[in-house]
Amino acid sequence: MPPDAARRSERSRRAILVAALELVESVGYARLTVEAVAARAGVGKQTIYRWWPSKGPLLFDAFVEFGQVGAGVAHTGDLGADLRAELRDAAAEIGQRRFDEVCRVLVHEARTDLVSLLLAPRRVVVEERLRKAQRAGEIRGDVDVPAAVELLLGPLYQRWLLRIGPLTPTFTDTIVELSLRAMRG
C-alpha cells in the first residue's frame, strides 16, 4: 500500500510551521528565510511556496496554530485574582520573542486578521469572565463590559506596541486594581 499523501502533507505542513516559529525566535524576522525554514523542516522551498506566498503569512499561520491565546480566564471566586492572572499571562505571551517578532511585522503590514485571530480570543474570554462577575454581583450591573475589557487590555497592548515600558506583573496588577475600583465603584 502506498504512503498516504494527505498524512505526509499534514506532517510536512506542521514541520514547516514549527520550523518557522523556532527560527523566528532564534534569528528574528528580518533574518528569517524561506530557505532556512525549508531546510529545518526537511522539505523543499517549493512546498512552502505552494502553501504560503511569503514568510509573513507562514508565520501568521504558525502562530495561530500553535499559540495559546484566549485559553480562558479562571473563575476562582476572586475576580481580582482571576484578572491579575489573565493580564499577567497576556503580558508574558506578548513579551515572548516569537509573538513580538511575528506580531510587530503583522501590525506593520496592517494585517486585520492579527486582531481577529490573535488578540480577539483573549478579549472574548475576559469579557465572559466579567459578565459572570456582573451576574454574581462582583461588579456593578451598569458596567459596560466591552468597554471594561478595553480598559483592562488596552494599556497592555499599547505598552507593548509603543515600547513605552516593561510588561511586569506590577504593571498588570495595577491595571486590574484601577479597573476594579471603577467597576465596583
Rank of each mutant, 00 (worst) to 15 (best):
R98F: 09
L106E: 09
V105D: 11
A120C: 01
F66N: 04
A62M: 11
V102A: 06
P146S: 04
A62W: 11
R122E: 12
F99V: 08
A74F: 04
F63M: 14
R84N: 10
V102H: 04
E127M: 14
R122V: 07
E127K: 11
P121Y: 06
R129S: 05
H75S: 13
R104F: 08
E138V: 01
A136L: 14
V145C: 01
R131E: 15
Q134E: 09
D144M: 05
V145G: 01
R104P: 04
R140N: 04
A85P: 02
G95W: 13
P146L: 08
R84I: 09
L118P: 01
D82C: 09
A71C: 03
C103E: 04
A92L: 15
P121Q: 04
G77V: 07
R98N: 02
R129W: 01
K132S: 07
D78K: 05
E65C: 04
V64N: 00
R129N: 02
L117G: 03
A92C: 08
D61Q: 10
A136M: 08
R131T: 10
A90F: 01
G70H: 00
A91V: 08
G70D: 05
T112V: 15
Q68G: 08
V145W: 01
V73A: 05
A81M: 08
C103R: 05
T112H: 10
V69M: 10
D113Y: 06
A81L: 12
L117Y: 06
A133T: 09
I94C: 09
E93I: 08
I139S: 03
E86Q: 15
A91F: 07
R111F: 10
A136S: 12
V102L: 03
D142R: 06
V125D: 12
L118H: 03
V125T: 15
R104V: 06
A148C: 00
V107Q: 10
V64F: 04
V124Q: 07
R97H: 08
E109H: 10
Q96A: 13
T76M: 06
F63H: 12
V143F: 01
R97V: 15
A147R: 14
E109D: 13
E86W: 02
L79V: 11
F66C: 01
L118N: 00
V143Q: 03
T112I: 12
E101V: 06
V126I: 15
D100V: 05
A74E: 15
A85C: 04
R111H: 11
R122H: 10
G137N: 13
L119K: 01
E128A: 14
V102G: 00
V69E: 15
G141W: 04
A120Y: 07
A120N: 03
A92K: 11
D89C: 09
R135L: 15
A62N: 03
A110N: 11
I139W: 05
F63A: 02
R88M: 05
D78P: 08
D78T: 11
F66I: 04
V102F: 05
H108L: 08
A71K: 09
R84K: 15
H108I: 00
R104E: 02
G67E: 05
R104W: 08
V115L: 15
G95H: 11
H75W: 11
A92N: 13
P121R: 02
G70E: 02
F63T: 03
G70Q: 02
A90N: 07
R131C: 07
L119N: 00
D113E: 15
G67N: 04
